[in-house]
Design a binder for these strands. Structure first.
Length: 466
RNA sequence: GGCGGGGUAGCCAAGUGGGAAGGCCGAGGUCUGCAAAACCUCUAUGAGUGGGUUCGACUCCCACCCCCGCCUCCA
């Protein structure tokens, strides 16, 4: 059985088959950050969902070519860079770097391409796409010198979001400086220079200005992946109008169906409410790190709720993630100690692994996948307690775990134990052998003070970072 | 007003027209010099509310309540 994914366009679970005739290559485009600030954990929830999707596809044998764009020019980047008194490129460079650091902290696999909107080749491509749309009578320049997409030329607009455009209610968010448009729904392809733009401008056939937001994704996606893409992801808030606009622009330019599977991730909430700076429940990844949490703990907390469900993020939830990871760590450590380099041999417990992947096949049902993992942990721990697991079987379970973790990315990074700590452990072992319990306990405290927890197991003392 | 998503134990959460997964927390126990971990046991006679269909409903249908989101540049 193959992978099934929920397609926003059809609102149905669909069997996934890539466009590639060989059924191997998967082309995936993911909307990335606008680099005007540190990305917040809601942004990262989307990127983690995309990471899970990529990793699962790869575990199932696909080769994923993924693009994530960086929006480095828009109202917010311009505004914030001017407030900071820096050139736009210098300003966004700070947040691009920060973004990649955060991506690494969360163990998100790097996409092959991270195109930025302001790269000359993409600006050129956006301009040539707009020119093409203009020659087709789809784009027009309004009195304000900006260029707009003539929605009346693309009847499919609204189909992704399942919106009936005639029934749209003006929500007050329609910018009041866009009265020059032929129709209220027409969206900007090219924005004429404005005083607020300062020195941010490119020359174009329509005068100086900058690209609209939507066109950048169409340009970068088709430039890097071609006219047809297998999977396009983003947050639900991108469905309308951003992804509708992408479809309209791309399909009018290429004449081909732009995207075959649209996947959208639900919003993150914090403490039951929408995350906002006003409510004081706004977190960046860095905020969590400052509170003493690790990237993988955040990864666990943000990844272990199905992507189509709203995720209520809480600090107790992070604590829970920490405890769950500790259980996995302990289990891996036990298996490693027991396997002791033995060659893997099949064990009846291995079928849990198939259940894990089968659950992910079903629209990335992560909860359904974790259940058999924890079943496996419980049963193999129990077998170890009863001395009913051979080293070869332990080695097999470790191999199974590595397959599972290639998707989860949860395994603890090995930390080198400092020599002085090892020496203290030696001393403590001697004290214990001599039944000098008081000295032994003092040494344990001393080791703890150095950041390590020592546990006496059947296999001898075990050290874990505090 | 239109269109979506959701309401399952203290918290997070899955699947299913017929025994309510799993994780965290909590309680008791086994083990241990002690501790920790691990393991075992316990923790929803009940699924937002009220109806209906059915031999049987958490699951299907209807109504209502509540939460969250989108409705023209928010992941």
């Amino acid at each position: 059985m193959g992978i099934r994914l929920f397609n926003t366009y059809t609102r149905q679970l669909e069997e996934f088959t890539p466009l590639d005739p060989a059924g191997q290559q998967v082309k995936m485009y993911t909307c990335g950050p606008t680099v005007y600030n540190h990305a917040h954990i809601g942004n990262f929830r989307a990127y983690l969902f995309e990471d899970l999707l990529q990793r699962h596809l790869e575990a199932r044998g696909y080769q994923v070519e993924r693009v994530m764009n960086l929006t480095d020019v828009d109202d917010k980047t311009i505004r914030n860079s001017r407030e900071a008194g820096r050139r736009l490129a210098d300003f966004t460079a700070i947040y691009k770097d920060a973004f990649f650091q955060d991506v690494d902290t969360l163990r998100i696999k790097r996409a092959q391409h991270f195109p930025a909107a302001t790269e000359p080749r993409y600006i050129e491509r956006m301009i040539s796409m707009i020119q093409q749309l203009e020659s087709q009578g789809i784009a027009y320049q309004a009195e304000d010198k900006s260029v707009y997409f003539r929605l009346s030329k693309f009847p499919d607009y609204g189909k992704l979001a399942h919106l009936n455009l005639d029934e749209l209610r003006p929500s007050g968010r329609i910018a009041n400086d866009e009265y020059e448009k032929e129709s209220i729904g027409d969206f900007a392809l090219w924005k004429a220079w404005d005083e607020k733009d300062g020195d941010v401008a490119w020359d174009s056939p329509w005068g100086r200005g900058r690209p609209g937001w939507h066109i950048e994704c169409s340009a970068m996606a088709t430039a890097l992946l071609g006219p047809e893409i297998d999977i396009h992801c983003g947050g639900v808030d991108n469905i309308f109008p951003h992804h509708e606009a992408e479809i309209a622009q791309s399909e009018c330019c290429t004449g081909k169906k732009f995207v075959r599977y649209w996947l959208h991730c639900a919003h993150l909430m914090v403490d039951g409410q929408k995350m906002s700076k006003k409510l004081g429940n706004f977190y960046t990844l860095r905020d969590l790190i400052e509170k003493g949490f690790t990237g993988r703990e955040a990864r666990y907390a943000l990844l272990t709720v199905n992507y189509r469900l709203p995720l209520n993020f809480t600090l107790p939830g992070l604590e829970s993630a920490r405890a769950s990871l500790a259980r996995i760590d302990e289990w891996v450590d036990r298996l490693t100690a027991h396997a002791a380099g033995a060659s893997p041999t099949a064990t009846p417990l291995s079928d849990f692994t198939e259940k894990f992947f089968a659950a992910l096949d079903e629209d990335l049902n992560i909860s359904g996948a974790l259940a058999p993992l924890f079943d496996l942990i419980r049963e193999s721990n129990s077998a170890l307690n009863r001395s009913e697991l051979s080293p070869a079987e332990a080695a097999q379970l470790l191999a199974d775990w590595r397959r599972i973790d290639s998707v989860l990315g949860f395994e603890r990074e090995a930390a080198a134990i400092p020599a002085d700590v090892l020496a203290l452990v030696e001393q403590r072992q001697q004290a214990r052998a001599d039944k000098e319990w008081k000295k032994s306990d003092e040494l344990r405290d001393e080791i703890l003070a150095k950041g390590w927890v020592v546990k006496d197991t059947k296999e001898g003392p075990k050290l874990t970072p505090r």
